[in-house]
Structure formats: C-alpha cells, structure tokens
C-alpha cells in the first residue's frame, strides 16, 4: 500500500518538476509585439514591431513572413531582424519591424506570433508566444449630402531617378558622338587644307604632251614600218592632252565627237584644222589600212605639236559659244 502511494506521488512530483523546468526555460525567453497605432483608416499603414528577449547563446528560429499577419492584416514590407547589444543581465534583444495595413473595417485581432528557440547545449525546441493585439479600423466618413464628384483621371506616378537614368546616358552618348564627329571633321579639314602645301605641283598637260610627241618622233616608228602604231600613239597623246587641258573626254570619243566637243573653246581655227586633218588621216591609217607618205607622217606630228602649242592657253570654254548654245537649247 505504502509502495503504491510512493510510486503515485513520486511520479506526480517528477512530472511537475519536468513541467517546472520547461516553464522556467520559457520564462527566460520573452516575446513582445506592439503596433504604432491601434486605430487606423482602411489602407493606412502602421508599424508592427516584434521584440524577443533571450539569454545569450540561445538559438532562435525567426518566423518567415508571407503576405499577411492574419486574414485581415496585410504585410506591405518588412525590415531585417535587428540584434541589439546585450543588456546588463546578459540577455540578447532581437527586433523586427513590419509595415502592415488592413482594408477591413471593424476590430481586428492580430494573433500572437510563435517564436521557436533552443537553449544553449540543448537540441529541444521551445516556443515563446508574443502577445495578441487588437487593431481598430474605422471607415471613412462619407458626406452623403455633398454632390458626386467626377472620377479622377489616372495620375502619373512621379518619375524616379532610375527611370530618367537611361535618358541621361543616351543624351550623354549622343553628345559624345557629336563632339567626336566635330573633332574628327575639324582635324580632317585642317589636314586637307594643309595638304596642298606639301603637294607637288602638277605638270601642265601641254608640257607632258609636247615631251611625249618629241619622244614619239625619236622612236622612229613609221620609219621602221610601224605606221599604225605610230598613228595610234600620236592620237592617244593628243586625246589625253585634250582630256586634261579642256576636260573633254576625248579618250572615249570618236574624231567627230572630239572636234564637236572642242567647238566651245576659242581655239585658233588653223590649229583646229590641223587637228582635224591629222585625226582623219590617223583614222584612215588605223581603220582603213591607209599608208601615208613620209611627208604626211612627219607633217602629222608637226601638226599635232602646233595644235598643242597653239591651244594650251585656251582651257576655258569661249563664253560666246556657250551662251549661243544655251540660247539654242532654250
């Protein structure tokens, strides 16, 4: 009997001791929650703060927040968990602030938040509950006697710096490109204006032609039976001279076209006659197997020399000839 009594009360004492131990452990950890205002309008944002006090070395599992605290209370954003310095009793204080709101009117209960922790050197998990809170959401007072107001248009949100940043970068980029182009063209302009200073002056076409004609004379082509080659070179020299001196594309022109093209220039008629005669003889030699006499061969070169010498000062088209032509065309 005695033995039964002992076992019963010893068991009760043991359970009580264990419960007391848990209670004592929980008493060391304290969770407190508070709100910055207990009465708000729908949608008004307040700060919900949760503080936890625990001895140093306790392992705390902080809750992971979702969108809501409860069915009626929404979390807008939350700050990071802060850890405060140890107090004089060797406790650690942890704090987190959440921005919350509610859109439902009435008295809303914010439930206690459960925070789990493990004491130092113990793998068991314990729970500390914060205090529950009440939040009063009062409706907006509506003046029913006032007239209806028109619906407001969509309001633009103020521009943020990040929105403006791409425009600023773009503008700076364009400005830089423009500056580079200005610099490049100014530099190039300077270079091109400076270039002529170092450019070797071009040789006048008539000097080149005279020299080439004299060289042709010394080559003695027709004397060696190369009459066709002689006349080909003779006409090529004069056609190149005409092209360079008068800017008439004589190399790509036929005899008639060359003579017609030179009509606009005030060239001595006698020189023109010499050119025309020689070009015609050259055509006969080149295209009709003509065999001019030795005198004609010599004269042809002399005539071409005369033409070059007499025409080189007439590089500009005669104004009278041009104006007459333009009148005809109009």
């Amino acid at each position: 009997m005695m033995k039964q009594w002992f076992v019963k009360y010893f068991g009760i004492a043991l359970v009580a001791l264990i419960g007391l131990s848990d209670w004592a452990t929980a008493q060391n950890v304290e969770a407190v929650s508070s709100i910055s205002a207990d009465t708000i309008l729908p949608g008004q944002q307040i700060t919900y703060e949760i503080n936890l006090k625990a001895p140093e070395g306790y392992l705390v599992e902080w809750p992971l927040w979702e969108d809501t605290l409860s069915k009626e209370v929404e979390i807008i954003r939350h700050k990071d968990v802060e850890q405060l310095p140890l107090d004089d009793k060797g406790n650690v204080w942890m704090r987190q602030q959440l921005t919350v709101t509610s859109f439902d009117t009435g008295v809303i209960r914010i439930p206690p938040i459960a925070l789990h922790f493990s004491p130092k050197g113990d793998t068991s998990k314990y729970e500390a509950l914060s205090n529950g809170l009440f939040l009063r959401v009062i409706p907006v007072a509506i003046d029913t006697s006032a007239a209806f107001k028109p619906i407001k248009g969509i309001q633009k949100a103020p521009l943020t710096f990040m929105e403006i940043l791409p425009w600023i970068i773009g503008f700076l980029g364009v400005a830089l490109i423009a500056l580079f182009l200005v610099w490049y063209f100014v530099k190039r302009q300077r270079r091109t204006t400076e270039m002529p200073l170092f450019e070797k002056p071009k040789r006048p076409p008539h000097l080149t032609a005279i020299e080439a004609l004299e060289n042709l004379r010394h080559e003695r082509l027709w004397q060696n039976g190369k009459v066709k080659e002689y006349y080909s070179q003779l006409t090529d020299i004069v056609r190149l001279y005409i092209e360079q001196q008068f800017h008439v594309l004589a190399v790509e022109m036929t005899t008639d076209e060359i003579l017609s093209g030179l009509k606009h220039f005030s060239i001595n008629p006698e020189a023109m006659q010499k050119l025309s005669g020689t070009l015609q003889i050259a055509d006969l030699v080149k295209f009709a197997k003509a065999q001019p006499t030795a005198l004609e061969n010599d004269l042809s070169l002399d005539h071409m020399l005369d033409f070059v010498k007499e025409s080189y000062g007439n590089g500009q088209p005669a104004e009278a000839a041009f104006s007459e032509e333009n009148q005809d065309k109009s």
């Binding site: 009709a288 001019p292 006499t293 004609e296």
Partner: peptide, 8 residues
C-alpha cells in the same frame, strides 16, 4: 597617201 585595197 596610198590606200591599198580600200581605195578599190
């Protein structure tokens, strides 16, 4: 100026 063949 002599033009052989062509003259004929």
């Amino acid at each position: 100026m002599i033009v052989t063949d062509i003259k004929e």
